[in-house]
Amino acid sequence: MTFDSATISMLLTGTLESLYMIAVSSLLAYVIGIPLGIILIVADKDGIHPMPWLHKPLGIIINLIRSVPFIIFLLMMLPLTRMIVGTTLGSTAVIPPLTLASAPYVARVVESSFKEVDGGIIEAAKSMGASTFQIIWKVYLPEAKPSLLVGAALAITTILGYSAMAGFVGGGGLGDIAIRYGYYKYETNMMLITVAILVIIVQIIQEAGMGLSRKSDKRIK
């Protein structure tokens, strides 16, 4: 491998494409996942507004989607991706499957974070006549904020891992470079460089998430 300006430009483009896929997919996954997570916690049998008829089927659907390996889910989504984006190649084409595969994971992260909120605080809010919306907005979200931030870091790094796998179908980004050069052309150095960049991105996301979580945690003085 010749580490020239063309190689540097390719790696830079791949890094930007990966960051683009991660940012857009994470945003859309949270737009879908947060409401799903709220429904799961509110509609649970021990929730503030139990709705078994909604909670159980929603939980099954979420578990079913989460159980499908992403590379298989990506292939299953190709017709829908082509319908939405107009193509199945490139970084933009990876966003629909990334979003739909990640949203159930985000929903479970949100549900888990909300379950960490002290039940006594919820009961106190209910006894004071707070509505379901008020409990969600003024109790659950503020109290679960540190856990939600840690969960967000984990979710984003998971989405990063998914995006790397998209290289197998020409999804662009660092994963595509690693597969085209490191796997098909046996250029081990290129593979190692792309892995190193991915590791650095993961570390930055994790540190940012943990740092924001510590700052928002009222228990830490």
Rank of each mutant, 00 (worst) to 15 (best):
V109F: 00
W53V: 14
P57V: 01
L74Q: 05
L100R: 04
I84K: 05
E123C: 14
P96E: 01
V110Y: 01
R66Q: 06
L78I: 13
E116T: 06
G90P: 15
W53M: 14
K56H: 15
G119F: 03
L75E: 08
F70Y: 07
G86Y: 06
A103C: 11
L100G: 11
K56D: 15
F133V: 07
S102K: 04
F114H: 05
L89C: 05
F133A: 07
F114S: 01
S131Q: 12
G59Y: 00
I122E: 09
M83A: 13
I135F: 08
V106E: 01
I136E: 04
V68T: 13
I62L: 03
S113W: 03
I122L: 13
I135D: 04
L75K: 12
I135A: 05
E116Q: 13
I62C: 05
G86F: 14
L64C: 05
A107W: 00
F73T: 01
L98N: 03
F114I: 05
M77Y: 09
A107K: 02
P69T: 06
I71G: 08
H55R: 09
W53T: 14
G90C: 15
A93S: 11
P79M: 12
V109K: 00
S112A: 12
F114T: 01
P69A: 09
I84Q: 07
F133E: 09
K56P: 15
T92L: 14
L100D: 02
I61F: 00
L80I: 13
I95P: 15
A124D: 09
V68Q: 01
V110C: 12
I95R: 03
I61Y: 00
I121F: 03
L89T: 14
I136Y: 11
S91G: 15
G119D: 09
S127K: 04
V68N: 09
I65W: 10
A103F: 00
H55A: 12
